[in-house]
Amino acid sequence: MNTIDYFKLQAKNLHKDFKTKTTLVDKTSSAFLYEYSPKYFDIEMVIADFDINENNFSLMNAQHVIAKIANFDKWASLLKASKSELELAKLMYDYQNRVDNVGWYFYIENAQSMNEVELDTEIQVDIFKQVVIEENIFEDTEIESYLLKHKY
């Protein structure tokens, strides 16, 4: 599956999770309008972080949220990204429980500054695979994830 199709699937999964909503019995005990039975995403965290209107959430809204989680400003930017930018975005998306966007960009900025070199996206992909996936250097950092597969 190519990366664009992967992110399309994530948007569809988010939209499916959102459609699991049922009316709350006791609306005074929750800040949300509905209860959810999600399979893929921490829906309440997504709603809170992205200020989502629970009464109006379309597949297009889901695409926008997925693009934001993948560190793009909008879905159209994700679609126009280079192959290496998409690969890095997918890695960061899949490993969002290990390092967040801010932590990663501080790490890259520090590496560039120390080595007095600009690290292009292809090199960042290789670095990510080594330090985040293989060595897990951020293991002492607690990161919230939008993905339920990371919630143990």
Rank of each mutant, 00 (worst) to 15 (best):
E85Q: 14
Y152V: 14
M1Q: 08
A67N: 03
F50G: 04
F18L: 04
F18M: 07
R98S: 11
E109R: 08
A70V: 04
A111T: 03
N71W: 02
T28H: 05
M60R: 10
P38Q: 01
K21C: 07
A31C: 10
T28I: 04
E122M: 10
N101H: 13
N61A: 08
E109W: 01
I47Y: 04
K74T: 14
Y146S: 02
S30W: 01
S58I: 04
A76K: 10
L88Y: 04
K27N: 06
D73C: 11
E87P: 00
S84H: 11
I43A: 08
K39D: 15
A81P: 09
D17G: 06
H15I: 05
I4L: 11
D17M: 01
Q124H: 04
F32W: 04
A11E: 08
E135D: 09
I143H: 05
F106K: 13
E139A: 15
K151L: 13
D100K: 00
W75G: 04
K27R: 13
I69F: 05
M1N: 02
S29L: 14
N97W: 07
K19F: 14
F7H: 06
L14S: 07
E139G: 03
E116T: 09
D49P: 02
F50N: 07
K83V: 09
K16T: 07
N53M: 01
S84Q: 09
D5Y: 08
D42Q: 07
H150G: 02
M114D: 13
T121G: 07
E134G: 00
F57T: 03
S29C: 08
S58R: 10
N101C: 05
L147M: 14
I43F: 09
E116L: 15
F72H: 07
N97T: 08
I66V: 13
F50T: 07
K19G: 10
E35V: 03
I143G: 01
M60N: 14
Q124N: 02
F138Y: 07
N61D: 12
F50E: 05
D49C: 10
N110S: 15
E44I: 01
V131L: 11
T23H: 11
N2E: 11
Y40Q: 05
N115E: 10
T3D: 08
E122R: 11
I123K: 15
F106P: 01
D126M: 06
V131S: 03
